[in-house]
């Protein structure tokens, strides 16, 4: 009951913001929401499950490309296209995770890095299907039950995805599965001794978070109404990693803080110091890792703890 109330309230508030914004701010706001959704699921994979994977943006890309390809090249109706895209993502995730999780963390990093690079190659060399280096363009979301989901109404769709991602991951994190993921991360030997199937837990965490990234990608496909290879490159993958680390890995609010801060930082700094904002970014990153490994959420928590003690 309380959960339902919170969900409704957060959807209403976040949607209301969407209706209040102009066209430029709407674009920034939508992308910010998508970064938050990605940071949330990557935070679970990296922070809670402890898997150093570089494929998160790849699954975002698979979701994004799947939509125009399945809708307009394969001619599938929207609900079918969504289901097919999810099935494809889950199969790809399984194909990567099952061999990779049998090996140690380092090999998962390598395998997922290879997947990320392979994906870019496939996009560039995909000919008609992926549109090559130019990507796919000139499409738009079909009307759903006669309603055109555009403008602030489409922002509501993104808000729903973000809120769903948050609450789904929160549920999972506070369940047996969240504890199993942390147990496998912290002490695999003890995890196995209490009955946790290590390989299964790792694969499930990888598939779940990858599917959530793909859902965000599906929504992204109709934000710009164009998809092209550079968006899904490694640069953004590492930005995502930094968001989670600076925000505080393993914490959902931390992921949100990290995503908001790092996404908005260039918008604030670029007018002031131009391209030097990358330098500030680097310094923030180094400071965060050296001074507070638990990230900004760690700083906030220790401050509130001190405040409460007074």
């Amino acid at each position: 009951m309380r959960t339902l109330l919170l969900v409704t309230l957060s959807v209403l508030v976040l949607s209301a913001i969407g209706f209040a914004l102009g066209p430029y701010q709407t674009d920034v706001y939508r992308k910010l929401l998508l970064w938050v959704a990605l940071a949330l699921s990557y935070n679970f994979l990296f922070g809670v499950a402890g898997q150093v994977a570089f494929s998160h943006f790849t699954f975002y890309g698979i979701g994004a490309y799947a939509m125009p390809i399945l809708l307009f090249q394969a001619g599938l109706p929207l609900p079918v296209a969504v289901v097919v895209a999810l099935v494809v993502v889950i199969l790809v995730a399984l194909a990567v995770a099952i061999p990779a999780t049998r090996l140690d963390g380092f090999y998962l990093a390598l395998a997922t890095l290879a997947l990320a690079q392979l994906f870019i190659v496939v996009l560039n060399e995909g000919g008609e299907v992926t549109g090559g280096t130019g990507g796919l363009t000139n499409y738009r979301l079909p009307d759903i039950a006669g309603v055109a989901l555009s403008g602030p109404r489409y922002t509501v769709v993104i808000v729903l995805v973000v809120v769903f991602t948050w609450f789904a991951l929160q549920r999972v994190d506070r369940s047996f599965f969240g504890r199993a993921c942390r147990a496998v991360r912290d002490n695999p030997q003890a995890a196995a001794a209490v009955g946790i199937d290590i390989a299964r837990t790792k694969v499930m965490a990888y598939v779940l978070t990858s599917a959530l990234a793909a859902v965000a990608g599906m929504v992204y496909a109709f934000v710009d109404n164009t998809v092209n290879p550079p968006i899904f490159g490694l640069e953004n993958t590492f930005l995502l990693l930094f968001m989670v680390i600076i925000g505080g890995s393993g914490s959902l609010p931390g992921a949100v803080i990290g995503a908001v801060l790092l996404y908005l930082l260039p918008f604030v700094l670029a007018p002031l110091i131009g391209h030097h904002h990358a330098l500030v970014f680097g310094l923030v990153m180094v400071a965060a890792v050296l001074l507070q490994p638990r990230g900004l959420i760690g700083v906030i928590e220790s401050l509130t703890a001190r405040w409460k003690r007074r």
Binding site: R179, D186, I196
Partner: peptide, 29 residues
Amino acid sequence: NCLFPGMSLRENVLTGMHGALQRPLWKVM
């Protein structure tokens, strides 16, 4: 001792109930 350092005492004990608490993730969500 092989405990889970990031967890509270109670959470450590809860990991021992993994088998009894296991269910499909969609049900958890």
